[in-house]
Design a protein around this nucleic acid. Sequence first.
DNA 1: TTGGGTGCAAACTATTTGCATTCGA
DNA 2: TCGAATGCAAATAGTTTGCACCCAA
Lengths: 142, 142
Amino acid sequence: MSADRTQVIERLRSHGITPTQQRVEIAQVLFARHQHLSADQVLTQVNARDASVSKATVYNTLGLFAEKGLLREVIVDPAKVFYDSNLDPHHHLFHMDSGTLEDIPVSQVNVDRLPDLPAGMAVEGVDVIIRVRRSGAPTVYP
Amino acid sequence: MSADRTQVIERLRSHGITPTQQRVEIAQVLFARHQHLSADQVLTQVNARDASVSKATVYNTLGLFAEKGLLREVIVDPAKVFYDSNLDPHHHLFHMDSGTLEDIPVSQVNVDRLPDLPAGMAVEGVDVIIRVRRSGAPTVYP
DNA sequence: TTGGGTGCAAACTATTTGCATTCGA
DNA sequence: TCGAATGCAAATAGTTTGCACCCAA
């Protein structure tokens, strides 16, 4: 369930990131597969393996990875940021009941190109988020 | 710059909300025009007028208004929630430099209908957010 | 009157920061 | 070696909550 150590190190290097022990630990968890994790979940999973990484380092590292383009930040829940290890262009389905995210292939939602932006503005990203919940009970996840 | 008191009261009533003094104060600020305000900005503007409303009441009231369909919550900034008094369907442009929001008419961004959802799931909302920043300097707003 | 609404302050949670220590190249 | 990275704990900021008091109906 964890990505190959050597591959991960190479990947960090190729993005200009010094592969320290804890960064590699974190990367192995994140890049094991496509997933959406909060900083807290990353902290838990990383420390469940073996190594001990501090909370501050997890936050710093996630921020760094996102900045360097290794992760995509997904902002759907006012309570916390999700980090998405799937870098292919795609959209998101947010399950309000469980507070979990699901990917939607771009092929399934077509966004006809953007409006003309004010001059001197560059698009940093386009997020499409579909919020769903179980139809019957309007439960709020705890 | 503030909506008519009587109209506001009527609007609250029609949504099943008891029009108390502070709720009316808050509503007058919000519904004066289409805008995107954070809880903190609402607090400041309300108390700049005259009345004194507590921070807790502002949060409670904004949450209530959103729940009753008088406001739309916009989640774009991990730091805070924006409340949008424009209820017409529309999308958002987020200026990362200034941390401000701008509306985009639906006519300018076409989302070809949604993917088939898991059974028993209802769509609560679809958010399209275009993040832009000044092209030259990758400044982060303070 | 009387239960919902409000204010205040304290509690919480996610995230950031300062600084001394440790580690990668 | 030496600057970058880490850990820890304390600081922040937005938001929520508990509880006594107050007001709309």
